[in-house]
């Protein structure tokens, strides 16, 4: 098992790629990581720090990419996505400029920092933009693989990584081109999860399977969700649970329901995520605690699943 974070796996691989290709550039908004320290020292000409100015990071990245550079723009997830949303819309999406936005801190990774640092609206906001793809990273194997993929893209994309270490689910060499994968097939219900919640889904499914229920898990790591792949993954399941550490409005659950509705696939769906219709999360005490407040902890999810199954 890999003991490296998604961030370090990703930037470690980007560094290797950048050593081979001087057109690989990093645009940084005052962010650090061990691999980035090495990058800054050894590949200083390819390391562009714009200061704490995410809009400018985006604009510079777009200009560089339009001149043929392979650009990664990096900041804390809500800032690189939402602070410069209109730059993404105009300078990337409308012109299909191939920049990779890299945001660290998916969901409530920054659990002690309050809602300004929670990336809980970014999937809803960005998944509607033309040309743009979101890759919500599940483990360090996927993170490393996407470093290669992002060096060779023809569209803007947004890589969303967890800040905390998570165990690896995938094995080296896995082909991520399908945009999602079925980790466990299930006939009674499928849990369709994304990002860190894929790990939670696996825990829940294993417990329920131990109780005799046939529960599967699908990992959605690309938005827009590949429609055919999703329909195939859930077609044999009696019920669907969607699971995300993200705003319920417009997030994974919404996206799944849109596809099901558009294809006339009618079956019970329970969306599990964070409801911010009245208030953002101003609660602390660790990520597990925050998750429990929104029903994202294992015990709550077991209850939710059992209610749905019964």
């Amino acid at each position: 098992m890999n003991n490296i974070s998604q961030r370090d796996a990703f930037w470690g691989r980007v560094f290797e790629l950048a050593k081979e290709n001087k057109d690989v550039l990093l645009v940084i908004a005052d962010m650090g990581a061990p691999a980035l320290d090495t990058f800054r020292v050894e590949l200083n000409a390819q390391y562009i720090d714009v200061g704490i100015a995410e809009q400018q990071a985006l604009a510079v990245a777009a200009g560089l990419a339009m001149e043929g550079k392979k650009v990664f723009a990096y900041a804390i997830a809500p800032f690189i996505s939402l602070r410069c949303y209109e730059h993404i819309r105009v300078n990337l999406a409308s012109m299909n400029v191939p920049v990779t936005l890299v945001g660290v801190g998916a969901g409530t990774s920054y659990d002690d920092s309050g809602p300004t640092h929670h990336a809980v609206d970014d999937v809803s906001a960005l998944r509607i933009l033309p040309n743009l793809r979101i890759h919500n990273i599940t483990d360090s194997v996927m993170a490393r693989a996407f470093a290669d993929i992002c060096c060779d893209i023809e569209y803007p994309n947004y890589l969303r990584m967890d800040r905390k270490w998570l165990p690896d689910i995938y094995e080296d060499g896995f082909d991520f081109s399908a945009g999602m994968s079925t980790l466990l097939p299930g006939k009674d219900a499928m849990i369709v999860a994304t990002g860190n919640m894929v790990h939670r889904a696996m825990e829940v499914a294993e417990t329920l399977r131990g109780n005799g229920a046939d529960i599967g898990v699908a990992d959605v790591f690309t938005f827009p969700i590949p429609q055919e792949a999703l329909l195939e993954a859930i077609q044999d399941a009696g019920r669907i649970i969607t699971l995300e550490e993200h705003n319920l409005a417009g997030g994974l659950g919404s996206a799944v329901c849109e596809i099901m509705a558009d294809h006339g696939m009618l079956k019970p769906v329970k969306r599990v995520g964070m409801d911010f219709s009245r208030k953002y999360c101003y609660r602390y005490g660790g990520r597990e605690h925050i998750q429990s407040l929104y029903g994202l902890d294992k015990e709550s999810l077991l209850r939710t699943a059992e209610e749905l199954l019964n």
Binding site: Q55, G63, E67, V90, M95
Partner: peptide
């Protein structure tokens, strides 16, 4: 060269092109 209409966007992009 670009799509523009929302103000304050094209100029930053120009700095990226100049840097390239």
């Amino acid at each position: 060269e670009i799509t523009s209409g929302s103000l304050g966007m094209g100029f930053g992009l120009a700095t990226g092109m100049a840097l390239a």
